[in-house]
Amino acid sequence: MPVFAPVLPARVSIREVGPRDGLQIEEPIALGHKLELIEAIAATGVRRVEATSFVSPRAVPALADAADVAAVLGRWPEIRWSALVASVRGAQRALAAGVRHLEYVISASDLHSRANVGRGTADSSGLVAEIAHLVHAADGSLEVIVGTAWDCPFAGPTPEERVVAVTAAAIRHGADAICLGDTIGTTTPRRVWELVDAVRRASPDIDVGAHFHNTRGTGIANALAAVQAGVTSLDASVGGLGGCPFAPGASGNIATEELVYLLDGCGVVTDVDPDRVLAAAAVAERVIGHPLPSSLYRAGGAAVPLDPARPVDSTHKEM
């Protein structure tokens, strides 16, 4: 019997975004607890971690300690630590704190861009060249994250051609990589295939990653669709934490442990230890003080095979 076997990449790089995206909508936690979570994440084998965000502490009080977090990241030199910024000033602060790899967010939706950073898409795009210059002068790298790449909470579906134009402009002005963000967790696999294909055809020489939220339960399916479309860089958050404070209804990211479980089961190498991710999720749950949304975490990890010698209750009860 023939078996459908799509061509998948041999390896996918996971960026853990729990310390930034995962915590940004939470009540602020003590620096010691945050570092405890970062230490647990560092032990999972993940090699890229978005540690914090250099944005206004008034807008995102949970990340007001960005410089303090950055000061200790040198304990784990094997990890490529990065930070998200939303302005030139944010980039300057991040670089001054010793972070060399930055993500700069541009919302493809004008309305969301104004709600998120107080300026329109065109004005945000206009800052890429200056930020790229600062980062490259510090021997760093700049990834542009295109938010609301599929849908906006205020304007509805984002036109594909608008996303392609934003990504192409970012690349022209110095971005080293692009990440497409499903900010409010509304997209589906077919739309993922279509947009990734369009962006890759317009900019074939640039790395395209993806960032999915699980708001409507399609996040992990969308991650697989992205991998099927050739994406080899995905974001995920331990325990499924996260959400955008400026996008109504946006809930958590896809859970790191669920993404590892999916990719391992598909024969795709991630270099991330699933048991240690579950251990990190337990730390996350304890320090934030509420249950995590991750289904895999709640289930207790991978399925345990039944003991064939154990009797099975075959009693059938009518309902």
Rank of each mutant, 00 (worst) to 15 (best):
A155G: 13
I14K: 00
V49F: 02
P28E: 03
A175P: 01
R172T: 06
S13P: 03
G230D: 09
L84R: 02
M319E: 15
T215S: 14
T148A: 15
R114F: 06
T232P: 00
C179P: 09
T218Q: 13
I131P: 08
I106V: 15
C266G: 00
T218V: 15
A202G: 06
A122V: 14
V117A: 15
R75D: 11
G147M: 01
S141H: 14
P248W: 13
D110V: 09
A129Y: 00
G118E: 03
A5L: 13
P157C: 12
E257W: 10
R310T: 11
E161F: 09
S82H: 04
P9C: 05
L306P: 08
L95Q: 03
G174T: 10
V88N: 00
N222G: 11
V199L: 06
P245E: 07
G45Y: 10
D307R: 07
D21I: 02
D205R: 13
L102R: 02
S203N: 15
P189I: 10
F212W: 10
H112D: 02
R100I: 01
E161Q: 15
H133W: 03
E285D: 02
H101W: 14
T256W: 05
R191L: 09
L241P: 01
A198D: 14
T218F: 12
V88S: 00
I178T: 07
E194N: 11
A129P: 00
D307C: 07
R216A: 10
R11S: 13
L111G: 08
A115Q: 14
E160A: 14
D271H: 14
I29S: 00
A225L: 11
V128H: 05
A94S: 02
G181P: 03
V85L: 14
A226S: 14
F154T: 12
G174N: 08
W81D: 02
D313H: 03
R190L: 13
R48H: 11
F54M: 07
F54S: 05
L259I: 04
V105E: 08
D264G: 05
P9H: 02
D207T: 15
R286T: 04
W76R: 01
A303I: 11
P19A: 04
V135P: 01
A70M: 10
E39D: 15
R191K: 12
V60T: 11
A97L: 04
S124H: 01
A115I: 02
H33R: 12
E318T: 13
A168Y: 10
G289D: 00
D139Y: 01
I288F: 02
A51G: 08
W150Y: 12
R190M: 13
A91P: 04
D205I: 06
T187R: 07
I29L: 14
A168C: 08
A59K: 04
L263N: 06
N116K: 05
T148M: 11
P61G: 00
A42R: 01
R201D: 14
T167Q: 01
V85P: 07
A165I: 06
L241Y: 02
A255D: 04
G174W: 05
V283A: 05
E194K: 09
V164C: 09
E16M: 12
G74D: 15
E36T: 01
A97W: 01
A210L: 11
A210Q: 04
Q92K: 13
V304Y: 05
L292H: 05
A165N: 04
G209C: 09
Y104A: 04
M319Q: 13
V260M: 07
A223I: 06
I14A: 00
G230H: 08
G156Y: 10
L84S: 03
A280M: 10
G174E: 07
